[in-house]
Computed example of a mutant assay.
Amino acid sequence: MVLAQEREGAITFKGNPVTLLGSEVKVGDSAPDFTVLANDLSPVTLADTKGSVRIFSVVPSLDTGVCDAQTRRFNEEAASLEGVQVLTVSVDLPFAQKRWCGAAGIEHVQTVSDHRDLSFGEAYGVAIKELRLLARAVFVVDKDDRVVHAEYVSEATNHPDYESAVEAAKKAL
């Protein structure tokens, strides 16, 4: 078993430095592959989303205020972004994600769970070692699986730069 790279103090969570597992993904990199679970427990990989521009909206937990707002915001944006898939990635259980989406009226974002093995978290360098949560981040991947936008939010309780992510997705169309 290969141990993931550890990046101590890469971000803070409620003001406390935390360690992120995995390498930092940068603009221009090939998007790393991953396997997460859809709400019906079926696997979802990078290849399953190929052929469209993707926004990966990464949140610690849908049951928190900023994560809720982030997912709702990208749901609104996705309604007018034809040709763009938006996936919200968290370690929430698929059942909880499905329940939350139903209660929140989320129709344009697909929630996927990384709870099983932190595949996405380690591949994109967003797994928080101390908490087994994912750090808040946004990645935009073009149709050719190239990363065209990468934002690691320095304080996990802050919002990402929504406008920059949406603009990067539009440019990648």
Rank of each mutant, 00 (worst) to 15 (best):
A168D: 06
A103W: 08
A38D: 05
H115G: 00
N158Q: 13
G15L: 08
E130H: 14
V58P: 01
V153F: 04
H149S: 06
P32K: 10
D92T: 15
P32S: 07
D68W: 07
M1G: 14
R116E: 09
R99T: 15
D33E: 05
V140T: 09
E76T: 12
R146T: 12
C67Q: 03
D145W: 02
V147C: 06
V44Y: 02
A103D: 15
F139E: 01
R73V: 06
S57F: 00
F34Y: 02
A104G: 10
D161N: 08
I11N: 10
E76A: 11
F95H: 12
T111F: 03
V147F: 06
F120I: 01
S154F: 04
K143Y: 00
L3V: 11
K129D: 07
A156R: 06
A168F: 10
R54W: 01
V18E: 10
E155D: 14
A96T: 14
V58D: 01
H115C: 04
V147Q: 07
I106V: 15
D33M: 09
V112A: 11
V166Q: 09
T157Q: 08
G51A: 05
R72N: 08
R132A: 08
R99W: 09
R136I: 02
I106K: 00
V66Y: 00
A31P: 11
L37W: 03
V36R: 05
A172K: 02
D117M: 03
D29W: 03
G28A: 10
A172L: 07
A31S: 11
G15K: 12
N158Y: 04
V18M: 13
Y124C: 09
V126N: 09
S80C: 00
L20D: 07
L81D: 01
S57H: 01
F74A: 02
L46V: 06
